[in-house]
Each structure stands twice: as structure tokens, then as C-alpha cells.
């Protein structure tokens, strides 16, 4: 464990807490893409298949449980909670996310570390996570104004993988034969997808103005 990875995990945790706060405090999920939340639940469920077979550390196991439980709770809340579900922007959250699932799975069958069930699903979860934010970014552009908590949620979600890139650089220089090409290249693509969001987020922070994404 290094400071970059710990900072990344904490930033990821903060993004989830901000989202839970937004849904709980405002009893609304307007501006949040249910499709992105479903993709993230799938990412965690397929990435942590080794939850009960491999033990890395108490921290690792607890964080996996938190990520799985929170992502499923958010999907449940947006689909089933009688108050929250009414505020879901169903008519603009129309990204065809099944294509993202299919593309990630096909790529995972072709490019993986080992041709085993667990490794193919691990690679699938890595590729899917890189693309999972797309429905959310599209929804933000369509819905124009972005409320603060939603903006902060997306910001922290994007920042956490940037910390992981620093973590991979650090591990590359400090550990022999450290190679995580799949996770690293996918993480670079994932962070790059946030580039324009980060730009507009920075502009809104500098001008102390509301976050506006161009349509």
C-alpha cells in the first residue's frame, strides 16, 4: 500500500459518500444516471469474485464489501425507493449502456492476464469501469445545470483513478517486475474521459460560478 493508492481509495470512498449524501439529504436522484450506477454495481460484483476465496488484508476485504454494498444500495434506491425513484431523469438517461457491457466483455475475452473465469471477469470489470461514467457524463450535458453534490460526486469519482495512475507509476519504479498494463491503460482511458468535465469543473470553481457543461 502506498500513499497514492490510499488517497485513491479514500477519494473513491468520498465520491460514494457524497452520492449517498445527495440522495439521502435531497431525497432526490435528479442528475444521477441510474445506468452508470448499474454499471458500477456490475464492475464491483465482477471484480470482487475473489472476495471469499482470496484474502489480501482486512482493509481490502472491508473496502470491497463497502463498494459492493453501497453500489447495490444506490441502484436499489433509484429503482425502488418510492420517493427517490420519482426524481430519476428516465427520459434523458437513455445511453445504451448494454453496448458498453458487450464491448467490455468481448475485449476481456480477447485481452486478459490468464484465460480463467475469474481473470476474464476481472479484465471485464476493469474495461467496464473505464466506460461506466459515459452515461453519467452524457446525462450531465443533457440536463445542463449540475447541482453541487452531483458535480462533486463526478469530480471525486474521476480523481480517484488519477491517484491510481500515480500509484502504478510509483509501484513500477519501486517494485521489480511490476506490470499492470490492463489496469494502467484502462485507467488512463478512464481518467481521460473526465478531461473535459475537469476543465469545466475547474472553470466553475475559479469563477465561483455554477458548473455548466456545454450541450
Amino acid at each position: 500500500m502506498n500513499i497514492f493508492r490510499f488517497a485513491g481509495d479514500m477519494t473513491h470512498l468520498i465520491s460514494i459518500l457524497v452520492l449517498l449524501l445527495k440522495i439521502y439529504a435531497t431525497k432526490s436522484c435528479s442528475g444521477i444516471s441510474l445506468k452508470t450506477q448499474e454499471l458500477y454495481a456490475l464492475v464491483f460484483l465482477t471484480r470482487y469474485l475473489d472476495l471469499f476465496t482470496d484474502f489480501i488484508s482486512v482493509y481490502n476485504t472491508i473496502m470491497k464489501l463497502v463498494f459492493i454494498a453501497s453500489s447495490l444500495a444506490i441502484v436499489w434506491c433509484m429503482r425502488m425507493h418510492r420517493v427517490v425513484r420519482r426524481s430519476y431523469d428516465k427520459e434523458i438517461d437513455t445511453f445504451r449502456h448494454y453496448f458498453l457491457i458487450l464491448a467490455s466483455f468481448l475485449l476481456a475475452v480477447l485481452v486478459h492476464e490468464k484465460f480463467t473465469f475469474q481473470e476474464i471477469f476481472w479484465a471485464f470489470s476493469i474495461y467496464l469501469e473505464a466506460l461506466a461514467i459515459l452515461p453519467q457524463l452524457v446525462l450531465l450535458q443533457r440536463s445542463g445545470n449540475v447541482d453541487n453534490l452531483t458535480g462533486q460526486y463526478v469530480f471525486f469519482l474521476g480523481a480517484y483513478r488519477a491517484f491510481y495512475i500515480l500509484n502504478w507509476i510509483y509501484r513500477y519504479f519501486t517494485e521489480q517486475h511490476f506490470s499492470r498494463w490492463i489496469a494502467c491503460l484502462s485507467g488512463i482511458v478512464q481518467t481521460a474521459l473526465y478531461a473535459d468535465f475537469f476543465y469545466y469543473y475547474f472553470i466553475s470553481w475559479k469563477n465561483n460560478a455554477k458548473l455548466q457543461l456545454p450541450a
Binding site: 476465496t53 482470496d54 489480501i56
Partner: peptide, 10 residues
């Protein structure tokens, strides 16, 4: 439970 370090990251 086997302790591994293959995917030690979240």
C-alpha cells in the same frame, strides 16, 4: 482462503 497478491488493488 489463500493469500495472494495478484490483484491486491481495489
Amino acid at each position: 482462503l489463500k493469500v495472494v497478491d495478484s490483484h491486491d488493488e481495489l
